[in-house]
Design a protein around this nucleic acid. Structure first.
Lengths: 188, 188
DNA sequence: GTCTATAGATCGATAGAC
DNA sequence: GTCTATCGATCTATAGAC
């Protein structure tokens, strides 16, 4: 991180790291100052409303990434089967094979949940809608699509917690593999 | 909560509420003082090492509850099929039909994770072991038991996050029902 | 756009009277 | 066992020089 003329996007990436490691309440400004290499004056220049605006920027950045790399591709009308498999591959990469938690889940489980409930809700609602639609185009019965999407998206969140607490990142991949199997149209 | 001669067990129950609502970092001593009705002097009388000891006591209390009501019953050698179904019923009740988060998961997702990694690890390891054993007695193939147990336990954690962010507690029950189905021996 | 200095509030923790 | 008073540290946020 350059100390001269910091790029807002670089700052956001570092902020994401800090929030991911320490949570919202645990990410103090002094810690953020240290990790970004920016003084408080600079941080408040970029984010006038302070820490809350920093977290909003990070969540918006994450939402944008998922929109582009996950939701839009699930909603793409070609290759409906591959789209779902691609989602699992992208998710595995994004979460570093189980070594990285989901910041949306971290915030959702924290006391700061109320502050960002709109952003959190949109993320999971959009994901569920995109996945359910893709599952429909893949031949999953209408009545099962949304419930299966919830099972998968919730399963991903839980598997990240599990991989961390078991100190076994590979548990994430194991669960991911089973969830991917669930998304295949049943033979009967 | 009585203001005279507080019972340690009552204090722990209130502490659990506060940590569950605000997370570890968000649960300040002033908030704890307010909710328990105890001054700091009293709190430090019960928990000389302060907030960390308070959280340890709460986690130990939760671990004890799960040991008695979930793990021990899963490990009971009678009615192997009903034991698994009973687990789902007990879990649904404990988590208030999806309206209450898991404090183990909350801490695991927070910056305080490192402080309690031993307690968190034991909770999930014990749960996985008990469930995998019960699944084995229920006829699940040896190679699938542990992976299925991970899918279920992770799925429960994730479903709680999902129910909260979707603002739809019933999503928890929907996922729980699907996970219970997975735990039935396949007909082939 | 960056920095240092600092305000004002709140933090976890302690002391000591009762 | 409970309380009040208070400590020093840290918190978020602001002010103002450069």
């Amino acid at each position: 991180m350059s100390r001269v003329v910091a790029e807002r996007q670089d700052v956001i990436a570092t902020l994401a790291e800090v929030f991911r490691e320490h949570g919202y309440d645990g990410a103090s400004l002094s810690l953020i100052t240290e990790k970004t290499g920016l003084g408080k004056g600079s941080l408040y220049h970029f984010f006038p409303r302070g820490k809350e605006e920093m977290a909003e920027a990070v969540l918006a950045d994450i939402a944008s990434w998922f929109q582009t790399h996950i939701f839009d591709r699930l909603n793409g009308d070609d290759r409906p089967a591959a789209a779902v498999d691609d989602m699992f591959a992208a998710v595995d990469g994004y979460f570093r094979q189980g070594r990285r938690l989901c910041l949306m889940g971290i915030i959702a489980a924290s006391g700061a949940h109320d502050r960002f409930s709109v952003e959190l809700n949109r993320y999971f609602v959009d994901w569920r809608a995109a996945l359910a639609a893709a599952l429909g185009r893949r031949g999953i019965a209408e009545g099962d699509r949304q419930a299966l999407a919830e099972e998968v998206i919730g399963g991903i969140q839980g598997a990240l917690i599990l991989a961390r607490t078991l100190d076994d990142p590979e548990a994430f991949g194991r669960v991911l593999g089973r969830l991917r199997t669930r998304c295949q149209p049943s033979p009967n």
